[in-house]
Every structure is written in structure tokens, then in C-alpha cells.
Design a binder for these strands. Structure first.
Length: 338
DNA sequence: TCCACTATCACTTTTGAAGCGC
DNA sequence: AGCGCTTCAAAAGTGATAGTGG
């Protein structure tokens, strides 16, 4: 097991300070830590008193749904430990979300069905130099916090495996040890701090978080290594009296993904195109190919195509000889490979 | 030769300023 | 002057793809 060092990027509030937290402890319950209100943002960069260390989880490549102990939910077919309901039941009751229970506090991940569709095929997230948004993004609701208590909500990305991976024979397989992690700063929700009642009456979204492969980027951009596996962790930080902070953490296994610079798995690409509004332009590839192919024709061919009946000899018709039809309905969200 | 990575493309959605009427 | 609505261009997002370099 290895550990990652992290500091809360916190220019306008107290820094969290705590010593090493072991996996079992991390999963179990609330931790009480002391705050350091005098720390400056610069000081949080150093591995001194303002640093929070946690142990990374160490998942095998096959354990895509795992972690029942911290989430109260151990997989698509299992039951929620506290309610006895299946995941499908929970989704129907609560707008498609996964309840992650830690003590009395419940965090419900929205768009759970979408996350699990991606998890089923092996979620890949594009990273680049400027930073690429996550899709699906992390959005959740919160229950069980003190309505009058003051809370920060913090987004973080942690390693999900000690291995690096390679895409071979249409699946991800572990190959050797992963590289040492870049130093990332947990991202505090811009609305923090707020009282519990305000957090509980709204959805909490981190849709603008970006992923990069270039170190030294700004807040809200996480620097990751390609071909390594990560997952999202949400921390709920309560401001107690006497400058103390209580931290409850929710590592969300459903968000496990592999960082890539280009998609490897066609199923992931299809899911992204069909789910992400920004990718609508790719849902009807013939339209794009039609324009592209027209530009590639020489002048004589372009003129012939333009002058003749477009229904009889369109570029589309020309293309049909060259390019096989899109193999599946562009709007089909099914992950059924049959 | 392979493959991870980058820049660029064509497309869509989002955002914010400007204009207008009440 | 202030407000609400519409319009429109710019910005920002997407995956595809060709080229680069280790």
C-alpha cells in the first residue's frame, strides 16, 4: 500500500491538518482534526502541519463495483445495507442516485445509471494539457448533516490502483507499477462554506472540474497520469467549535476511471457521444462525413455532384460505396453488445 | 513499426452583451 | 431608470483525425 500527500487548497479558510489515516479508518466514520486558521495558501504547499495524508485505495482491475463498507452499496445487483432495497429500487425512489452512507450522513450520487453504464464498459476520461472536463461529472445531494452547522464540500481525485494499465484485446489489463502521483489540491466547492440546511436543499455539482496531464495547473484542474486508474472522493468538512474540523469522506467507486489521451474502447466513445450534449455533432456521423468527403473531391467531381440530382448522385451516395454504415443506432443507449 | 500524445477540425451548447419594449 | 425578454456572436465544450516523436 502506498500513500498520497494532499493539502487542501484553501486561500480563504482554515487548512485541514491531520496525520495518516488508514484505509479501514477512512471507510468507517467521522474523523476529528484540528484546523490551522493562520496558514497561508503558500504554506499549504509544503509538507508541514497543513498537510493531510491519506492512503490511496488499492483496487484490482476486476473490482469495478466494489466498496460496500463505505458506500452501503456493493454493486449493481446487491442490496443497500441499510434499506434492504436493490439499486434499481433506490434509483426509482430517488431520481437515479446511489446513496453513499457514512455514519448519519448520506451522500447520493446523481446520474448513477449513467455512471454505471460507463463502469460496465470501463470508464475512460480524456486528459490533455489545457484540462478536459469530466463526463459524466459528479453531482450529488446531501442528507443527515446538522442544519445549522457550517460545512465545506470538497472534491478530490485519488488513485484507485497501484498498477498502470494497457488496453489489450478490448480490455484494460494491469502492467507494472503506476508512476508517482502528481501533487494535487483537493478542490473546495465554490459555495463553501455554507450551513447544512442550504447544502441539503440543493444538488451539489462539480461539473466544471477538469483533468490534465500537465503539472502545475490551477485550482479545479487535477493533474493525472495517463493509463492509471483513479476515483472521485468527496469530503464533507464540518467547522466545529475551537477551530476543529470534522471530516467525513466518501470515496465513490462508481466513478472509477482510467485517464487517457485518446479513447481506447469504442463502447466508451459511443456512450460519451450518446450522453454528452456537446457531442451531439457526432451522433449522426454521415452528416459530418458527407461534408468532409465533399471537400476531398476534386473540382470536377464537386461540380458533377452539385449539378446532378442530389437524390440520385449525392455525396452521401458516393460515400456509401466507400464507408461502411454506422454499425448501430446512434441514439441507442444500450450497452448490450449483442 | 508502434503507440502515446498534440494540434486542429467541424460541430454543438453555453454565456453574456446588446437591443428593444414596457 | 429598471426590469424582462429576445437575439446573436464569441467562448467553450465535444470526439475525430492526421501528424509527431520517443
Amino acid at each position: 500500500m502506498e500513500s498520497t500527500n494532499m493539502s487542501l487548497q484553501n486561500s480563504d479558510g482554515p487548512n485541514i491538518k491531520q496525520s495518516k489515516v488508514h484505509e479501514a479508518e477512512r471507510k468507517s466514520s467521522t474523523k476529528r482534526v484540528s484546523s490551522n486558521t493562520s496558514s497561508s495558501p503558500a504554506s499549504s504547499n509544503e509538507s508541514s502541519s497543513s498537510e493531510m495524508e491519506v492512503q490511496s485505495s488499492d483496487m484490482d482491475v476486476c473490482q469495478v463495483y466494489a466498496n460496500s463498507s463505505s458506500s452501503g452499496y456493493s454493486g449493481m445487483q446487491s442490496s443497500s445495507s441499510d434499506t434492504g432495497k436493490s439499486r434499481e429500487d433506490i434509483s426509482d425512489d430517488n431520481d437515479d442516485c446511489i446513496p453513499l452512507i457514512n455514519g448519519s450522513i448520506t451522500l447520493s450520487l446523481m446520474e448513477a445509471k449513467l455512471w454505471y453504464k460507463f463502469l460496465e464498459v470501463g470508464t475512460e476520461m480524456i486528459i490533455n494539457r489545457t484540462g478536459r472536463r469530466m463526463f459524466p461529472y459528479v453531482e450529488f445531494s446531501l442528507r443527515g448533516v446538522d442544519p445549522v452547522g457550517l460545512y465545506d464540500v470538497i472534491f478530490d481525485i485519488i488513485p484507485a490502483s497501484s498498477k498502470s494499465f494497457k488496453f489489450l484485446n478490448n480490455k484494460w489489463i494491469p502492467i507494472g507499477r503506476k508512476e508517482e502521483e502528481y501533487k494535487n489540491y483537493p478542490f473546495k466547492h465554490p459555495d463553501s462554506p455554507r450551513i447544512g440546511s442550504e447544502w441539503m436543499t440543493r444538488k451539489i455539482s462539480f461539473e466544471k472540474v477538469k483533468l490534465s496531464n500537465k503539472p502545475g495547473t490551477k485550482a479545479g484542474i487535477f493533474t493525472l497520469h495517463t493509463l492509471q486508474k483513479y476515483l472521485v472522493r468527496i469530503s464533507i468538512v464540518k467547522h466545529e467549535r475551537d477551530d476543529e474540523l470534522s471530516v467525513v469522506e466518501f470515496p465513490i467507486r462508481a466513478t472509477t476511471f482510467i485517464a487517457v489521451t485518446a479513447y481506447n474502447n469504442r463502447d466508451v466513445t459511443k456512450l460519451k457521444i450518446n450522453s454528452n450534449p456537446y457531442s451531439k455533432g457526432f451522433r449522426f456521423p454521415m452528416k459530418r462525413l458527407k461534408n468532409h468527403a465533399f471537400e476531398q473531391l476534386d473540382a470536377k467531381e464537386q461540380r458533377m455532384v452539385t449539378l446532378e440530382d442530389p437524390l440520385k448522385s449525392s455525396v452521401y451516395g458516393h460515400l456509401k460505396k466507400e464507408i461502411p454504415a454506422f454499425p448501430q443506432c446512434p441514439l441507442d443507449l444500450s450497452t448490450n453488445k449483442d
